[in-house]
Simulated scan of single mutants.
Amino acid sequence: MPARFAPLLFSALLSAIMVCIVSAFVLLTSQGPHADFTTQWIKSCLTTWPIAFPTVAVVAPWVRKIVGRMTT
Score class of each variant (00 low, 15 high):
14 L>K: 05
7 P>F: 00
33 P>E: 08
11 S>D: 01
29 T>Y: 14
30 S>L: 13
66 I>A: 14
70 M>D: 10
33 P>F: 14
26 V>K: 10
61 P>E: 00
57 A>W: 05
64 R>S: 11
69 R>N: 13
18 M>K: 06
37 F>M: 11
23 S>M: 09
31 Q>Y: 13
66 I>K: 13
29 T>V: 12
70 M>N: 12
47 T>M: 09
71 T>M: 12
54 P>N: 01
21 I>R: 06
57 A>M: 05
32 G>I: 10
17 I>P: 06
40 Q>G: 03
45 C>M: 10
34 H>T: 03
66 I>R: 09
16 A>I: 04
43 K>S: 11
40 Q>M: 11
13 L>Q: 07
54 P>K: 00
70 M>E: 13
1 M>I: 09
15 S>H: 01
58 V>G: 07
9 L>G: 11
28 L>Y: 14
9 L>E: 07
26 V>E: 09
22 V>M: 10
67 V>L: 12
55 T>R: 07
27 L>I: 09
51 I>Q: 06
4 R>L: 07
60 A>I: 01
36 D>N: 14
51 I>M: 07
1 M>S: 15
42 I>Y: 04
4 R>H: 08
54 P>C: 01
30 S>I: 05
66 I>S: 08
46 L>V: 04
69 R>G: 15
4 R>F: 13
44 S>K: 02
68 G>H: 02
11 S>A: 15
58 V>N: 01
7 P>S: 02
51 I>T: 11
32 G>W: 10
23 S>L: 04
46 L>C: 08
16 A>N: 04
58 V>H: 04
59 V>Y: 08
34 H>M: 09
52 A>C: 04
32 G>N: 11
31 Q>A: 14
12 A>H: 05
2 P>K: 05
3 A>K: 15
34 H>W: 05
63 V>M: 05
23 S>N: 09
22 V>R: 02
40 Q>K: 12
70 M>F: 15
38 T>Q: 15
27 L>K: 07
59 V>C: 03
34 H>K: 10
29 T>W: 10
17 I>F: 07
50 P>H: 03
35 A>G: 10
24 A>V: 04
65 K>S: 12
10 F>A: 06
22 V>I: 14
23 S>I: 03
